[in-house]
Structures are given as structure tokens and as C-alpha cells.
């Protein structure tokens, strides 16, 4: 979670609020923040660390692991209408990449601001060309995009 905390100023600039969730109590969140995470990121965790001790939130999102009694590593991007736009779920041993999450948020924001008239191709980064889906684009994506453009 310190990786997300480190990029929190950037997320705030994008108008994104962050909530982290685990089955630990808010008391344990305090101990983890104060004793370890605050040594990884200056000032500690700047967002709300939520406690889901009975797994109710995790169950609602399909990330509750019944056998081990913890949450899987689930990441949800939720838009201003409360609609889930992206889901990523990993098993515990592999960490996320926050840069990819930020890239996806920027892409979803672009699409939303265009009123759904734009789409972002594979590997799109801010500043790269976007697609304008419509009859004129059918069979002609190759003219504006190809896999070698992905950095």
C-alpha cells in the first residue's frame, strides 16, 4: 500500500480518492502505518485504511478468500457515478503496479470526458493518439495504430 501512498499526490490531482481494505482492525492499521509504512513513505499512509474484520466488504466485491479468511489482492477503479470500470485480482504473493492503475484511470477519464466518443488503444499512454470508433474506422485501425507503438 505504500506504493499507492507514494503516488497519492498524483492521484489527487486526477481527482481520485483511495480506500484500502483488509481484515485487520483499525488498531492494527495504525500500528502498521506508524511502525512500518511511515518508514517507506514520508508522512505515512495519506488515505483511509478501512477494516473489514468479518469480510463483508470483501464478499460483496468477490475478493473474500473463505479458506484463508483474508481478502485477495483486488483492485477496483470506480467512476464518479459509482460504476466499476476496472477490476484486477491477484493472489497474495504478487504485488500490483500502481503506474498501470494510474494509466488506466487516465484512459477511463479521457473516455468519460469524451462522452464515450473516444477509445484508447492497447498500450495507450497520455498524449498518444486515441481512436474515434465509428463506421469510418472499421478496417482502418491499422492506419492509426499498430502494436509497435506500444512502449
Amino acid at each position: 500500500m505504500s506504493a499507492v501512498a507514494d503516488r497519492y499526490p498524483e492521484l489527487q490531482e486526477l481527482g481520485v480518492e483511495v480506500i484500502s481494505v483488509s481484515v485487520d482492525s483499525h488498531f492494527v492499521h495504525k500500528m502498521w502505518n506508524d511502525n512500518e509504512l511511515s518508514k517507506m513513505v514520508e508522512g505515512g499512509i495519506p488515505f483511509q485504511m478501512a477494516s473489514d474484520q468479518n469480510g463483508a466488504v470483501g464478499r460483496a466485491y468477490g475478493v473474500w478468500d473463505e479458506s484463508s479468511g483474508v481478502e485477495m489482492r483486488g483492485r477496483f477503479i470506480i467512476d464518479p457515478d459509482g460504476v466499476i470500470q476496472a477490476i484486477e485480482i491477484l493472489t497474495p504473493p504478487v504485488g500490483r503496479r500502481i503506474a498501470e492503475t494510474i494509466r488506466q484511470i487516465q484512459a477511463f477519464q479521457l473516455v468519460r470526458e469524451s462522452g464515450g466518443t473516444r477509445a484508447t488503444p492497447a498500450g495507450w499512454m497520455p498524449g498518444d493518439p486515441v481512436l474515434e470508433p465509428g463506421p469510418d474506422l472499421v478496417g482502418r485501425v491499422w492506419e492509426v495504430w499498430n502494436p509497435r507503438m506500444e512502449k
Partner: peptide, 30 residues
């Protein structure tokens, strides 16, 4: 859910953030 946030205990509803983008991150444990 109950929260720890910048030195304080409190609570959060997802709906507190209606109208904003939200990044919701679950993880196995502190």
C-alpha cells in the same frame, strides 16, 4: 467500515466519495 486515517479512528462509506473517482484496494493483511 471502520478506518484509521492520518492519526484518527473513524469510518468510511463508499458513498462519501460519490461524484469522485475511487481507487479501492484490497490486500491480504497488514
Amino acid at each position: 467500515a471502520a478506518t484509521y486515517h492520518r492519526g484518527e479512528f473513524g469510518s468510511v462509506n463508499l458513498s462519501d466519495h460519490a461524484g469522485k473517482w475511487v481507487l479501492l484496494c484490497f490486500y491480504p493483511g497488514d
